[in-house]
């Protein structure tokens, strides 16, 4: 039997690491990686608490839909990063400071 404390500690540390990555990195792709890390931390918690009502499988279903939304987010995010790079020749979000052509 896996104690649920262990999984909670693991996912809390994963979420904090993802938050630090999102804040301190100066690159849009690394920020996307940090967001994926935070989504995975929440998925781990959902799988752990799936055991509350194992016959309804609500946690596992939530994880499936979270994965679908993560796919959408990565695709749209990468497309926006590519367009911004073609236009501004940079993928650093802090340097994109103007809206005009």
């Amino acid at each position: 039997m896996i104690p649920v404390y262990q999984i909670l500690f693991l996912s809390a540390l994963l979420f904090s690491a993802g938050m630090v990555v999102v804040i301190i990195k100066r690159n849009a792709i690394m920020i996307l990686l940090g967001i994926e890390l935070m989504l995975n931390a929440s998925n781990l918690n959902l799988i752990a608490f799936n055991q509350l009502y194992p016959e309804k499988m609500a946690g596992q279903m939530f994880v499936l839909f979270v994965i679908v939304v993560a796919v959408c987010e990565a695709a749209v995010g990468l497309a926006i990063i590519l367009r911004v790079y073609q236009h501004y020749q940079t993928s650093v979000p802090d340097e994109v400071t103007e809206l005009m052509d």
């Binding site: 039997m1 896996i2 104690p3 909670l8 500690f9 979420f15 904090s16 630090v20 804040i23 055991q51």
Partner: peptide, 25 residues
């Protein structure tokens, strides 16, 4: 960033100490 992450982690750990999870997998 490190302060934010460490603070959030500490907050989560502090919140976990109030909960009794009898649950196991």
């Amino acid at each position: 960033g490190v302060l934010c992450g460490a603070g959030f982690f500490g907050l989560l750990m502090y919140a976990f100490t109030f909960q009794k999870f009898e649950l196991g997998i």
